[in-house]
Amino acid sequence: MFGLKRDWTVTLPERYFTFEDYEGGEARWCPGCGDHAILTAVQRICRDEQLPPEQVVSVSGIGCSSRFPHYMGTYGFHGLHGRALPVAAGVKARRPELKVWVATGDGDCCSIGAGHWIHAIRYNMDMTVMLFDNAIYGLTKKQTSPTSPKGLSTNTHPRGAWLPPLNPTQATLGFTNVSFVAQTVDWNPVHLHATLKKAYEHKGLSFVRILQRCPTYTDKVFDDLQSDPRKILVLEHERGVPVDPALDRVFPTRQAHDPSDMGAARALAARDDVFAIGLLFQDESCPRYEDFTRRGLDMSVDDKLAGLDAALDRFAL
């Protein structure tokens, strides 16, 4: 951005990016789908941060959420069902300078890709992972997802889902080396944006579970939260997600929560009487895997050849 220096000279950026620079193809999600709000929030953050679009990679798996990269004007990777996280990790491994956003759904992340989810949290590579949690498989037309509430009628459980839903936040807070966990909802763009911005700024893997309405299949699944805003518990802390005064009227229920307090974070995640939004946990001291995988990036070809020659020497007669 523009900036005035102490010596009164002005730094003028060579390029200035507008919101449109981060727009890709026209979003084909259903009207009223929560994904539109998430896309807009990410595009705003890219614009506000003036990220060169060529330095941004959005990675996804398969599902409604995973169409996300197609609607970004950046580089993108729309890969396989459940496999966004290994691809994103591979991108970061030797290109740690790239800004990576991962879009994944509750089926993609918490079911078919669950193994990768555990390990991506542990790798803690610097990226923002957005769990679009609409509690249903949308693209394949209404099958039970791991986060579907018990009793939800779906095409695979027409008489109601049998089991209580998996709690992704609680699970993530149990994985070793977790460094950032937040929750938000798609129907409040102010808090959504603030949460994703906080996540973007985090050094390490930031995991953000976003409750996201599916107007086609799970229109009513978050009704209790929407009809009774007191059930949304806004977390407040100086190191947490900033709470805009505009939220005072919408979400009156507040709780102070220190994001370094893992015990309190787990307790909050486990509550089923309220849904806590904001930053549950953050620890920037966790090791980041790219600090290991980036080793040797600057080596010259001559040094490589010398290294290989030495490797051959060990087998020489």
């Binding site: 396989l80 496999r83 996280l85 290994p86 990790a89 193994g115 390990h119 040797g296 290294g307 290989l308």
Partner: peptide
């Protein structure tokens, strides 16, 4: 010696996915 790394992935799928991403 050539400035590279070995990544032991969590499974075979992740192993190729990581390589594809890189």
């Amino acid at each position: 010696r050539i400035g590279g790394v070995v990544h032991q992935a969590e499974d075979e799928i992740a192993a190729i996915g990581f390589a594809v991403g890189a």
